[in-house]
Amino acid sequence: MSLLELKNVSKIYGDLKALDNVSLHVDQGEWVAIMGPSGSGKSTMMNIIGCMDKPTSGEVLLDGVDISRESSKKLTDIRRDKIGLIFQQFHMVNYLTAVENVMVSQYYHSMPDEKEALEALGRVGLRERARHLPSQLSGGEQQRVCVARALINHPELILADEPTGNLDEANENIVLDLFAQLHKEGTTLIVVTHDPEVADAAQRTIVLEHGKVAREVINENFGK
């Protein structure tokens, strides 16, 4: 069953086509990697799927709802209820502790629950650093906090834009292991990456070039 479907989506800045008539679909529970050279439109696409931006033309169906036509209020609701976002940069509120940064997500979703937030930090191996401020955490640790924050509300879809771009091998493996676990639990994952190893972990890789889908590769070795 298809969770996400893009139909002839374009995003045009002046005379630059950041996305040029892109069509694709992602199934419920699927783990997809997106690759492509710099400037090929990967982040642009993720921002549109993540309800942070709207396409110039085309339809974006998420769970059957065309999010390219929704009001900004409705988009906030959809993002809060269905999507977990992870970026290359570690976006934390710098005067809140690790566990509070995770709780912020619960705060706007339902009710802050510290116990649950601590468990989520435990999943990314940061149970002991819960009371630290971002400035007291390494980059890799900050990114893991962001991952914990993205999954705290059990989103259907996790969007990660170069989540391991700034991480060392050890941290990258922690994040990839977690993705594998989320995949097993039925979460749909879309991961933008430049790293072939990260792409290899996914079931399918979509390659963008000049704002167009250049090709798709099914990972025959998935799960092996």
Binding site: V93, N94, H109, N153
Partner: peptide, 16 residues
């Protein structure tokens, strides 16, 4: 600005 952008991404609505 950045802090509020993060909060928006964490699910805060404009009203909140």
């Amino acid at each position: 600005t950045r802090e509020f952008a993060v909060l928006r991404l964490a699910g805060a609505s404009r009203g909140m």
